[in-house]
Simulated scan of single mutants.
Amino acid sequence: MPKDFDSTLSDALDLAAHSAQTAGPNAARIRGRQRTMRKRIALSTASLALIAVGATAAFKVASPGHDGAPMMTKPTPSATSAVSVAPTLTPSDSATSAPRTAASGSTSSSPSTNPSTAGSSVTGTPTAADPLKLVSAAWLTSSQMPFDSTFNWTSDPAPSGVPGWKTLSKTVSYFPSNDSRQSLTTCGDPTPFLARTIGGQVTGYAPTTPPETATANNQAVQYVFFFTNAETAQSAFTYLLGQYNSTCFSTFKGAQFTKTAASSTEATWLMRKGTSGSPDLPDYSREYFMLRGSTITYVSVLSYTQTLPTTYDDVTQLNTIAGHACAYGGSCQQQ
C-alpha cells in the first residue's frame, strides 16, 4: 500500500510539472515575435523560447486563444486605403546566395534559365508538396529579393531550438500548422490561416547595406505554405487576400494600402505607415502572394527606417517568384 501511494504521488507530481511548462515556449515566442517575427522569421526566437520556458508557466491558464497562445489585440481606429491594380511575374534558383546583378530597383530572371544551386532546374513539374521535404529550387536567392540593390540582402541561417520547427537546410526551416505567432501578413489573423495548412517552410534575409541594427530595422522573408490539395490552397489564397479589406485598413488609421498587382493566382500589396501611430506597423512593407499547385508562396520586405519608392517593377518580381514557386507544382509563368 505505501508503494502504491508513493507511486501515485510521484505520477501526479510529474504530470503537474509537465503541465506547468506547456505554455512557456509558445507564449514566449508570441511575445518575442511581434514586429520581429516577420523580421527574421524567428531567427532569434530560439533563444527567447528557451529562456522563457517555465517563466510563463501560468500563461496558458490566463490567456484564451488557440493552443494557449494569446492573439495580438489591434486598435480599432480608421484608415485610408488606395487600391490600384496592375499586372504581374519570371523565375530563378535556390536558397544560397548567387552572384548579384546590379539592378536599379528591380530583379529579373527567365523561366527557361532558372537552375537551382542544388542541381534542380525549375520546370514546373509537380513535386510532392510535402512541407517536410525541401526542394531547393523553390527558394529565391538573396539577390532576387525585392530592393536587393538597396539592401544587398544576405541569407539568414536557419534557427535551431524553436519548438515544433525542423531544420531542412542551412537556411530553410519547417514549421507546423499550429505554429503560434502574433503576426504574419500585414492584414489578417495568422492562426486561422495557418490552421488551413499542413505546415510550411520559411527562410529570412538580412541587409548588409546598411547592416541591421536597432536603428536600421529592415527585413525580408520568403514563406511557402502547404495544403492537402490544390482546391484547399485556392480556398486559403482567397481567404488570405480577403483579409485586406476595410476592417484591416480601419485598424491602422492613417496607413495607406495599395494593391499594385493582382490576378486570380497572384497579388502584391504595398503598405505605407503614413500618419498611423500603430507600433506594430513598419514604415513600409511590400508583400507578394502567389498560388501554385497546392502551395502559396509569400515574399515580403519590411523597413522601419528606409523611405523606399512606392513604384517598383512588381511584374518582373512576380515573374521571378513564379520561376521558383512552380518547383512544388504549377506554372512557372505569370498567370
Rank of each mutant, 00 (worst) to 15 (best):
A52Q: 13
T154C: 07
T258S: 13
K166Y: 05
T45A: 15
A137L: 04
A52Y: 11
T150P: 02
T208N: 00
A118I: 00
P87V: 10
S183E: 14
Y304V: 13
Y205N: 06
R35K: 13
V61F: 05
I321Q: 11
S246H: 07
V122F: 06
V221A: 13
K166P: 03
A103I: 06
S160A: 06
S108H: 11
N217A: 15
K170N: 11
S110Q: 14
Q21M: 13
N229C: 03
S155A: 12
G329H: 00
T247R: 14
P25A: 03
D189S: 08
T209A: 08
P25K: 00
E212S: 10
L15Q: 15
R29K: 12
P207R: 00
P2N: 12
G68F: 00
F249L: 09
M290T: 10
D283L: 08
C326L: 00
K170D: 15
L194H: 00
A86I: 04
T107D: 08
K273W: 02
S7F: 10
S278L: 01
A195K: 12
N114R: 06
T238V: 10
A69W: 01
A236I: 03
G119N: 01
T215P: 00
Q306L: 05
S84R: 15
G329Q: 01
T265F: 06
A214V: 13
T258I: 10
P163N: 05
I296E: 00
S78R: 13
P190M: 01
K74G: 11
T56R: 09
T215H: 02
S142L: 08
T167P: 09
H324W: 14
G242E: 00
V221P: 05
L50V: 04
A103W: 13
T167F: 07
H66E: 14
G54P: 05
T307R: 09
T123Y: 04
T311P: 05
T232W: 09
T101L: 08
N26G: 11
P157N: 13
R31D: 15
T228S: 14
D313Y: 09
T320N: 10
A58H: 07
A322G: 04
S104Y: 09
E212N: 12
G54V: 02
S7K: 15
S180N: 07
L241Y: 00
S92K: 11
R40Y: 09
A42Y: 05
S300M: 07
Y298D: 03
A46F: 08
T209N: 11
Q335W: 06
L140K: 12
P111I: 01
G105Q: 12
A27Q: 01
Y328S: 03
K133M: 09
